[in-house]
Design a binder for these strands. Structure first.
Length: 507
RNA sequence: GGCCCGUUCGUCUAACGGUUAGGACGUCAGGUUUUCAUCCUGGUAAUAGGGGUUCGAUUCCCCUACGGGCUACCA
């Protein structure tokens, strides 16, 4: 039972896709482990077979892989404390619940669902709510209220039962949360939670304590929703005699909806138009597809950076971090206590920042497959020129295509709103004339073009914009895009001229 | 209802008990640009309320309000 160093675990339940908050919990565990040369462990908490969703486990692993968070021990690569899937550890839990029973810290309860329902109705009189605990346990059907013979005969005839923790009375449980400080609870407010279900599997409460102990977990970093049951977990450690080597707890604040109140949920993403999941999730039963950050064109490093700063800050004004920088700057005591509202606009801002950090070649690697799927085979050198012109306007990866398509396809429509605004009497004839002069331009480049435009507008006594805006409309189809000279120079003389004449015909 | 946790600009947040309460996102206004973006500059905007403690509270304590979480044979 020697100290095994820093060991943390991420313990998701495979009941569906992992959302933002889950990824952040994993991230904080990862950062803490890496910073302390510790181990980062994945443990699948699948003790509820009713809620098992096929594909969820795989989804969780793939998501974290995309984020770049690698485990030291998990169900694939194994480890010294395997298995890492709780459903494969049921024998272990049986053994430990036996210890609790022997020591009188747990008891058998035979109440059926209907009986529990009855009790709830009977005891909840508007002011008070039913709690299976000190005030009620003796009136229920359990090994505390029944004789030993009665219990034995019930077991013998095959009655199903659960095993509940016996919460001691009038005891103050105190523990130190690394984020919140001292948390104090009187045991009288705790109820006799089910530790072991009638299906032979433990509940979270038992499994988590037993596994954290057995796996030598040094720090439990988990969501705030576990704070209320932490005192009960502490009691469990005490009953087992493990209090001296109990992990330290850190309960993370929740991630809230961008607007309004409450926990962030999948619905918010649908409603407000941003992903809440790291990668796309296809619901196996509902044939419904939820957006993922990956597929929407976010960079994993931007996603991670954004999550890291949602509830934690480095104490400096640095906002952009590499994973390594996050590892070295991270600290549990700079995690906030209050929940943080998620801000999709800031997520996009992070992504923009990270895209600007990419090299042209990296961006090329993203754009190239898109070009191919659109049936475009362009000279790499040409594509690189295009990328350098449009890269600064790219916020999400798909913008790469959105902003570069004009270099690969001539427009077939011309924005009527823009036309209305800029097309004047005489514009067409200006353009005809200009186009004719363009034909003889040699060499054809930004500089020569510029000179020609100056000469032309001066001769016509018109503003540069009076020529350039209509020109842009013909060549691009709208009022958007990089500088007109840049576009022309990249497009080349032939294509440029062709678009002008086609435009003049069709507009 | 009970128990637990929380509360600084619209949002994320900074501030050994002493700061003109700082930064970022958003937003607004200017500038750059032949367009749209980007970019640059500037502005806007906060300590929930009330009591203490203290020479002095954003900071420490209490109360109230508000918000959140938990209250399953779910995690």
């Amino acid at each position: 039972m020697e100290t095994a160093g820093i060991r943390v675990r991420f313990a998701p339940s495979p009941t569906g896709p992992l959302h933002l908050g889950g990824v952040r919990t994993a991230l904080y565990n990862y950062l803490f482990a890496r910073q302390n040369n510790g181990k980062f462990i994945l443990r699948i908490e699948d003790t509820d077979q009713n809620r098992y969703v096929p594909g969820a486990e795989d989804y969780i692993i793939k998501s974290l892989q995309w984020c770049g968070l690698e485990f030291d021990e998990d169900l694939i690569k194994g480890g010294p404390y395997a298995p890492y899937r709780q459903s494969e550890r049921s024998a272990i839990y049986k053994e430990y619940i036996g210890i609790l029973l022997d020591r009188g810290h747990a008891y058998l309860a035979f109440d059926t669902a209907a009986e529990l329902e009855d009790a709830r109705n009977k005891f909840s009189n508007g002011h008070e709510q039913f709690q299976y605990g000190m005030k009620t346990r003796l009136q229920m059907k359990n090994s505390l209220s029944m004789t030993a013979d009665e219990v034995k005969s019930r077991i013998d005839r095959g009655d199903r039962y659960v095993i509940r923790i016996l919460i001691p009375e009038n005891l103050t449980v105190i523990f130190n949360d690394l984020i919140r400080g001292e948390v104090k609870v009187l045991t009288d407010s705790l109820d006799d939670k089910v530790l072991f279900k009638s299906d032979g599997l433990p509940t979270y409460h038992l499994a988590n304590v037993v596994d954290d102990y057995l796996m030598r977990i040094s720090h439990v970093i988990r969501g705030e929703e576990w704070l209320p049951s932490a005192p009960m977990h502490l009691l469990l450690y005490r009953f087992f005699g493990w209090e001296y080597s109990m992990p330290q707890f850190a309960h993370l604040p929740l991630i809230l909806k961008p607007e309004g109140n409450g926990k962030l949920s999948k619905r918010d993403g649908d409603r407000l138009g941003f992903p809440v999941f790291p990668i796309e999730w296809k619901d196996p039963s509902a044939s419904e597809v939820s957006h993922g950050y990956k597929e929407d064109g976010y960079l994993p490093e931007a996603f991670i950076n954004m999550l890291a700063l949602l509830g934690w800050n480095p104490g400096t004004e640095q906002e952009i971090f590499t994973l390594d920088e996050l590892i070295s700057s991270f600290s549990l005591d700079k995690i906030n206590k209050a929940g943080a509202k998620f801000d999709p606009a800031k997520a996009r801002w992070f992504n923009h920042k990270f895209i600007q950090l990419k090299t042209g070649a990296e961006l090329y690697a993203y754009l190239d497959p898109v070009l191919r799927s659109n049936g475009i085979s362009a000279d790499p050198e040409y594509v690189m020129k295009v990328i350098s012109l449009i890269r600064e306007r790219v916020e999400l990866l798909p913008d790469l295509w959105k902003h570069s398509v004009l270099f690969f396809r001539a427009p077939d429509t011309y924005d009527p709103q823009v036309k209305l605004k800029i097309w004047q009497e005489g514009t067409s004839s200006f353009l005809e004339e200009f186009s004719a002069m363009l034909k003889g331009l040699d060499p054809f480049n930004k500089e020569s073009l510029h000179a020609l435009v100056e000469e032309f507008t001066a001769g016509k006594k018109i503003k540069t914009a009076q020529l350039m805006n209509p020109l842009r409309l013909l060549v691009v189809g709208s009022n958007q895009g990089p500088g007109m000279m840049d576009i022309a120079a990249v497009l080349g003389k032939d294509e440029f001229l062709e678009r002008i004449s086609k435009g003049l015909k069709n507009i």
